[in-house]
């Protein structure tokens, strides 16, 4: 069953990529522009860290690694599952989920992997570049970083599913739901060392931006078993909850009677 699932996912990804890569010049322009866009963030933080010195024990190398991880995880999520954050709420709102429901495939996977964002490849590439540039990539930190890429992607996907699923209950989620997702993304792009106390706990267990914003850096600086458990367990629990939430909401879905073509 897992094999069929992965095979279907692979086919969806292949279709989405072919779709986007058909306009090659545009694809590469978007990749380059996104990489330039991401560089601005890193340059801003580098300038400020050079001015202010360390921020609660974090130096410029930590912020570059954090930004690299955020970009790479977001890139993987957005490249593979762009159908969630940008499209799910719209499909539900306009009653266009029928196309996916009527197919004998997993509905959530079908929706999530229905779109691919070319600029996400730029995110992914620039993320890898900054991870390497941080100077903290080593044989000991590599497994942690790889684990974070998977965990972070799962967290982004879960958040996108949660937000998109709200469209089963509320109108206009396509607009304000995107804002919520961007706020979450913004939380992962701030130096994680600024979060302390209750805020840190909330950002780890309730709204797990911490899985991307500060936990990986803490593990690279000081790997602990408990940290690794958090890195694995929290995204899995969050993902399971988001899937449950989606299927709960699906019971409320009413068809829009729209004829549509998957495209």
């Amino acid at each position: 069953m897992v094999g069929k699932f992965l095979k279907f996912f692979g086919q969806l990804l292949k279709t989405s990529i072919s779709n986007e890569y058909s306009l090659r010049l545009n694809f590469w322009i978007e990749v380059i522009f996104m990489a330039i866009n991401n560089s601005f963030w890193v340059v801003t933080w580098l300038i400020l860290f050079n001015k202010f010195g360390s921020v609660n024990g974090w130096g410029s190398e930590h912020i570059v690694l954090m930004m690299g991880i955020t970009m790479a995880t977001f890139g993987i999520y957005s490249f593979c599952f762009s159908g969630t954050a940008d499209w799910l709420a719209g499909y539900i709102d306009r009653g266009e989920l029928d196309t996916f429901i009527l197919q004998p495939k997993n509905i959530l996977l079908n929706v999530a992997a229905s779109k691919c964002s070319p600029s996400a490849f730029g995110d992914f590439l620039s993320g890898l570049l900054f991870i390497g540039f941080s100077g903290l990539l080593s044989l000991s930190s590599l497994p942690i970083i790889l684990l974070t890429l998977v965990a972070g992607c799962l967290v982004f996907l879960s958040m996108a599913i949660f937000v998109g699923t709200l469209a089963f209950w509320f109108k206009g989620v396509e607009g304000w739901g995107t804002q919520i997702f961007h706020l979450f993304l913004n939380l992962t792009m701030q130096p994680g060392s600024i979060y302390t106390g209750v805020v840190k706990t909330v950002l780890l267990f309730a709204v797990p931006a911490g899985i991307i914003a500060f936990l990986p850096i803490e593990l690279v600086m000081n790997p602990t078993a408990w940290g690794l458990v958090k890195m694995v367990a929290i995204p899995l629990v969050f993902f399971a909850a988001s899937v449950w939430f989606f299927y709960r909401g699906l019971r409320r879905y009413e068809s829009g009677n729209n004829f549509g073509i998957r495209g």
Partner: peptide, 15 residues
């Protein structure tokens, strides 16, 4: 083909 990237870079200039 896609002006979204330009909009994002414009936003980063603002930042």
């Amino acid at each position: 083909q896609n002006t979204h990237s330009v909009a994002m870079i414009f936003q980063k200039f603002m930042f």
